[in-house]
Structure formats: structure tokens, C-alpha cells
Write a protein that binds this DNA or RNA. Sequence first.
DNA 1: TAGACAAACGGAGGCGCCTCCGTTTTAGTG
DNA 2: CACTAAAACGGAGGCGCCTCCGTTTGTCTA
Lengths: 184, 184
Amino acid sequence: MRADAQRNRDKLVEMAAQAFAADGVDASLEEIAKRAGVGIGTLYRHFPTREHLVEVVYRREVEGLCQAADELARDHPADVALELWMQRFVDYIATKRGLATSLRLLLTTNSTLFSDTSGRVSGAMRSLVEAAAASGKIRPDVDASDVMHALGGIYSAPNTPDWRERSGRLVKLLMDGLRFGARG
Amino acid sequence: MRADAQRNRDKLVEMAAQAFAADGVDASLEEIAKRAGVGIGTLYRHFPTREHLVEVVYRREVEGLCQAADELARDHPADVALELWMQRFVDYIATKRGLATSLRLLLTTNSTLFSDTSGRVSGAMRSLVEAAAASGKIRPDVDASDVMHALGGIYSAPNTPDWRERSGRLVKLLMDGLRFGARG
DNA sequence: TAGACAAACGGAGGCGCCTCCGTTTTAGTG
DNA sequence: CACTAAAACGGAGGCGCCTCCGTTTGTCTA
């Protein structure tokens, strides 16, 4: 791929991520192209349909989330890393919710998308939880899938305006529970 | 509702059914309005979104299918009625397949749609099967849900060009199996 | 039957989608 | 460097979506 093509593609994905986050999946593609500083034709060459673009943005989101797990684990104590990551997980769910309509269509078409991403995310959570348990920062008798399950509450809430705040409190509460009775 | 409004609404649904069958859910709404002899504004007043129109067309399709069961039962021997109805069921699946994308969205939004329609359809099949079994035209040791299950094959085939022919043969084969060992 | 008014009609206009193709840029070659 | 072919760019144009509002029609009352 030519250097300019790569640059434009990256810029398009970047702008699309912002636009989808701000305006939902129905954000104007022409606006996205304009903000990326390219013509609409260029956008369509890279991404033949809106769904293609949504998928790339979504995979990028998942990628960022998983990469953050590694960085947080490197830069913070294990329990703090877990908490920060879960707060970021809330953001991820928010964007996933925004992309839901398109994702539903994608998931029925491209079945690898779901298995790819859900595997990656739960893997990231697992390693954070196990590291925290091993270091004694949280109680040892918890399983990563239990924690994931406990986070399930953030899915259920409708799009209330205070959803983010409530989800943040849910994470803190969960962390308190996890730290209770820890060795460290 | 004013008489002219009712007339226009009926005409719109009629034309929409034809258009969706011919061109899929992406059929032009402006074309549908034109063929119904009304302006595009009238279409949008009756059906604020494409999905509203799809839902009404779909319910109408289900309605017609269930009503056909009664009529066929009245006008034909029980086994013939069952066979004719299953042939019509194939058409129904074909249109349902065509509307699939929109229906998927509708089903997640309006949960009564699925329970309403699938209940009605399986009820119609049940009464046809039971009547045929009771009259001795087909073997008595079959359950309506088994027959429905046997028809499952018509779902699986991708949109091959000969799908309709193959489904028709499937129905005939199934009927032969049902008639085998019947009293009458 | 005339008159009034609520309800329905219809299409112009503005916007986004997407295709198509002439123009520009890049990377490789002599 | 100059040249060239391949690749990428960009935006005009055509089409469908949907809203908005001035016009028409049906229905009810006197």
C-alpha cells in the first residue's frame, strides 16, 4: 500500500471513530471524509460500505482496550490497573452500544467478528484479575468470569443520562468487594 | 379515519408488498408512493419510517397465510389442503427472507411481533395437520411440530436460483411421507 | 344545500449516499 | 533526473430519503 493511501486510511478511521462516538452510526460519511481532508471517493474506495468502516472502528476500539490492559499492568499496581481498566471497559461498552445496530448486522454476516473480539476482551480481563489476585492486592477466591459477570449490570441500563456515572460507581463498588479480605 | 385516507393506506400497503417482493426491502419509497397514486408525503404520514411499512406488510403476509389455511381447509380434502398450504408457506418464507434485514431490527425493538406471528403460523399448521390426521388422509402418528421441523430445510438453503423448485419438491416428498400408511 | 374546519394530500427542497471518471501523485526505471 | 505506469485522489452528478407547509378534500352542521 502506498504511503499516502495508508495515511489517508488512518486519518479516516480516526475521524470516523470520533464521529461515531459523537453522532452515532448514522454520522455523515461526507463529513467524515471532509474532516479527514480527503474526498468522499477516497472514503468509499477504502470502505465500500458504512458497515466496513464501522467494523474497522470497532476492531480498533477492541484493540485499544486490550492494549491498554498491558500498559496499565505495566504502569500501576495490579489492583489499580484492574480498576482503571474496568473504567475504560465502561467506555468501550458505551461505544459498542452506539454501534449496536450496525454490529448486529455485521455479527450475523461475519461470524468471526464476535468470537475474535469477545475472546480478546475476556482474555485481557483474565490476565488483569489473575495478576491482581497473585500479587495479593485483591482476594484470591475470585474468577475472572465472575468479575465479568458482575459487570453485566452496565449492559442492562437503558440510555439514561447518568448511565456513565452509575457505571463508574458500580466499578468502584466491585473493586471494594474484590479488595475485601486481600492479603496485601 | 377518513375514507380517502383508508383507501390510500390500503393502496400503499398493496404496492409496498409488490415492491418489497420484487426488489427487496430497499425498494424505493418514492416509487411505491407513485404507484399507489399518492405523494411521498402521504406515504410518510401513514408510515413514519421504512420499518413501519415493512412491519405492516409482513403482518399482512402472515394474516393472508393464516386465512388461507381456513379457506383451503374448507375447499379441499384435508391432505390436499395441507399440501397446498405448505406450498404457500414456501412463498411466505421467501418474502420473510427478503425482509430479513428489517425484520431483525424490528424483532429486537418490538418483541411482540415475533411471538404474535410465529404463534399464528404454527397454530394454522397445527389445525391443518390435525384435521388431515383425524380424517385419515395422512398417518395419525405425526405431530404438527414434527412437520414444521421437517420443513426446516427450506430455511437453510442459501438464495440459490432454484430454491423455490427444490422447496416445492421438499413439500411433495414430505406429503408422500405423511400419506404413507394413512387409513384413507 | 351552503359553509366551515379538521384532516389529508402532494411535491418542492435540502441533505446524504454512492458511483464514475478525469486528474494528480507516487514509486520504480533507464 | 526525466519518464511512465499504476495507484490513489476528489468531487460532480444522479438518486432516494424525509420534512415542511401551502392546497385540497371530506364530513358535519345549520
